[in-house]
Design a protein around this nucleic acid. Structure first.
Length: 409
DNA sequence: GATTCCCGCCACTCG
DNA sequence: CGAGTGGCGGGAATC
């Protein structure tokens, strides 16, 4: 009961809350594990009013992401073990995969080996984004077909639906990689870069994240609803089920990107539909660093209603029962290479390899791209944001002003 | 009633 | 073949 339910939300001390959360998470790591088996769900006794303990928000991916960042975003944290992370954050391993996958797709993390990730930090974002945009533009103009613009009613897109078992001799991936499976054409020695495992990869959260981001980077509109996004990414005609699934994933992604302040939920002026808007870039997590994002406390404006990094850790209590047995021993085996890696490597190397992770970009608004004074009013020049990182990575110096998130004692 | 999205089963992959 | 990964979609919490 140490964790008070929401409430912290919307508070001005978003920063500390998150920090505390992370700290708490780390501390009660063990606790959370056993705390779980609580009679969470409707047990049977009474109506359905026992939810005074279970809160969906406390377990959101966004929050988890915030905590994850708070936990690792510091000087040098080196290898991040999934088990360790899961334990520290008090969640199941499965959830860590979700976080890690999207973080990796935007350059914050780098997968080293099985169970092993390296923290790159927020300064890995600009580059990752630039690369993404390049690729996006490249495939948009000529070369890569990118069926993003035409939709032959049939299904030429992402999902291959039925060919699950019909696989002709195991070499099915010809042109089905509609969405371009990450692959920066610049690979001197790399024969065939895709394996049959591409199927899976095609639908991976990571790839989806990148494609989702590409949408923002290339498109002229600045807000996209998940619904539209899913259509664009999928190609028009579709089984409704496919769409639904896609959208579910997009929600997941949007939540973590939101927690990183890369995007923000808004409500489209005309249609009241909720949508997401790209914020400059390299946002900083909503965690500590009160210096940067100074939300006018109450000011919530019409934009997002959810705020991450506010509540405490997402630990314990499931809504159902079942406890996960998280206690496998990692093997730590050096893994082979993989296309994705090579890409990341380039990013990394370009970063100067070191990539001091302690940086936190300010709410920078290089060209007045974004001012976060009054959310409601701002919305002015964000049209040329597309070129931001360019200059940003070149001239913009990330101001380091992160006074020890919260120090682990 | 609609939207958001957590949970965890279980198919794939990889070592 | 077992362990690590992670797609996927049911269905509950929220809006």
């Amino acid at each position: 009961m140490a964790t008070t339910p929401a409430m912290a939300a919307a508070s001005s001390s978003v920063a500390q809350a998150a920090a505390a959360a992370a700290a708490a998470a780390a501390m009660e790591s063990a606790l959370s594990q056993q705390e779980r088996p609580r009679e969470t769900l409707a047990g049977g006794g009474g109506p359905k009013s026992r939810h005074h303990t279970y809160s969906r928000k406390q377990k959101s991916l966004g929050l988890l992401c915030s905590n994850f960042v708070a936990l690792y975003n510091r000087e040098n944290v080196d290898p991040i073990g999934l088990d360790e992370a899961a334990r520290s954050l008090g969640v199941e391993r499965r959830r860590i995969y979700d976080i890690v996958n999207v973080l990796e797709s935007i350059g914050i993390l780098l997968r080293k080996a099985k169970n092993r990730y390296t923290w790159i930090g927020f300064d890995g974002i600009p580059m990752a984004l630039r690369e993404l945009k390049d690729r996006a533009l490249r495939e948009k103009s000529g070369l890569a077909p990118s069926q993003m613009d035409r939709q032959p009613a049939a299904n030429v897109s992402d999902d291959e639906d039925h060919d699950k078992l019909g696989d002709p001799d195991g070499d099915t991936d010809s042109e089905k990689l509609s969405q371009t499976v990450d692959n920066p054409s610049d690979k001197p020695s790399a024969p065939q870069c895709r394996l049959r495992s591409d199927h899976r990869k095609e639908k991976s959260l990571g790839l989806l994240t990148q494609n989702f981001v590409k949408l923002f980077l290339t498109m002229e509109v600045d807000t996209i609803s998940l619904d539209e996004a899913s259509k664009l990414l999928l190609g028009e005609g579709h089984e409704e089920t496919n769409m639904r699934t896609k959208v579910r994933r997009l929600y997941d992604i949007a939540n973590v990107l939101s927690s990183l302040n890369l995007i923000e939920k808004v409500h489209q002026a005309n249609t009241k539909k909720p949508a997401f808007r790209w914020l400059s870039e390299a946002g900083k997590p909503k965690t500590e660093t009160g210096a940067t994002v100074v939300l006018p406390s109450s000011a919530k404006t019409v934009t997002n209603k959810r705020t991450f990094g506010t509540d405490l850790t997402n630990t314990d209590m499931n809504r159902s029962n079942l406890d996960s047995t998280i206690q496998k021993k990692p093997k730590l085996v050096p893994s082979g290479s993989d296309i994705l890696n090579s890409c990341k490597l380039s990013v990394q190397s370009r970063l100067g390899q070191g990539s001091r992770s302690g940086f936190v970009y300010g709410p920078f608004h290089p060209a007045g791209a974004r001012k976060q004074v009054l959310d409601g009013a701002n919305k002015s020049g964000q049209r040329e944001r597309s070129e931001n990182w360019e200059s940003l990575s070149a001239s913009f110096r990330p101001r380091y002003q992160n006074q020890g998130v919260f120090n682990t004692s």
